Simulated assay, not measured.
Amino acid sequence: MNTTNQNMNVTKEYIDTAGHKSGMFIESTNLNNPVLLFVHGGPGFPQYAHVKASGLSWANHFTVCYWEQRGTGMSYNASTQGEITLERIVADGLEVVNHLKQKYNQEKIYLCGHSWGSLVSSIMASRQPEHFLAYIGIGQLGRHYESNRDTYDFLLETAIERGDEKAEKHIRSVKFNKGFYKSQEYRKLLGRYLNKYGGGTKREGYSSWEGMKDIIECKHYTWKERLNILKGIFSSYQALGESLANTDATVMAPRFEIPVFIVHGVYDYQTSYKEAKRFYESIDATSKQMYTFEHSAHSPFVEEQERFMEVLVGDVVGVVK
Score class of each variant (00 low, 15 high):
residue 1 M to S: 14
residue 2 N to V: 13
residue 3 T to L: 12
residue 5 N to K: 15
residue 8 M to S: 06
residue 9 N to F: 09
residue 11 T to G: 04
residue 13 E to A: 13
residue 22 S to P: 00
residue 23 G to F: 11
residue 23 G to H: 14
residue 26 I to D: 01
residue 27 E to R: 14
residue 31 L to V: 09
residue 37 L to Y: 00
residue 46 P to Y: 14
residue 47 Q to T: 12
residue 56 L to Q: 13
residue 58 W to F: 12
residue 62 F to W: 08
residue 64 V to C: 04
residue 65 C to P: 09
residue 66 Y to H: 14
residue 68 E to L: 11
residue 70 R to N: 07
residue 71 G to A: 01
residue 74 M to H: 10
residue 75 S to P: 05
residue 76 Y to W: 14
residue 77 N to C: 09
residue 78 A to K: 11
residue 79 S to I: 09
residue 80 T to G: 07
residue 95 E to D: 11
residue 97 V to A: 06
residue 99 H to F: 14
residue 105 N to W: 01
residue 106 Q to E: 15
residue 106 Q to L: 10
residue 108 K to Q: 13
residue 109 I to Y: 03
residue 114 H to F: 06
residue 114 H to D: 02
residue 119 L to K: 00
residue 130 E to S: 13
residue 139 G to C: 03
residue 142 G to H: 02
residue 142 G to T: 04
residue 148 N to Y: 11
residue 159 A to V: 02
residue 159 A to L: 02
residue 162 R to E: 06
residue 170 H to I: 04
residue 177 N to M: 03
residue 178 K to R: 15
residue 180 F to G: 03
residue 190 L to S: 05
residue 191 G to Q: 12
residue 196 K to W: 05
residue 201 T to H: 11
residue 205 G to F: 07
residue 208 S to V: 15
residue 210 E to V: 13
residue 216 I to V: 14
residue 217 E to D: 15
residue 220 H to L: 14
residue 231 K to S: 11
residue 235 S to T: 14
residue 236 S to M: 06
residue 239 A to R: 04
residue 240 L to T: 09
residue 241 G to E: 02
residue 243 S to W: 04
residue 244 L to W: 12
residue 250 T to I: 08
residue 260 V to N: 10
residue 262 I to P: 02
residue 263 V to M: 13
residue 275 E to Q: 12
residue 278 R to N: 08
residue 279 F to Y: 15
residue 287 S to G: 06
residue 293 F to T: 04
residue 298 H to I: 00
residue 298 H to Q: 04
residue 302 V to E: 13
residue 306 E to I: 10
residue 307 R to K: 15
residue 308 F to S: 06
residue 312 L to V: 06
residue 314 G to K: 00
residue 315 D to K: 08
residue 316 V to T: 07
residue 317 V to P: 02
residue 321 K to V: 14
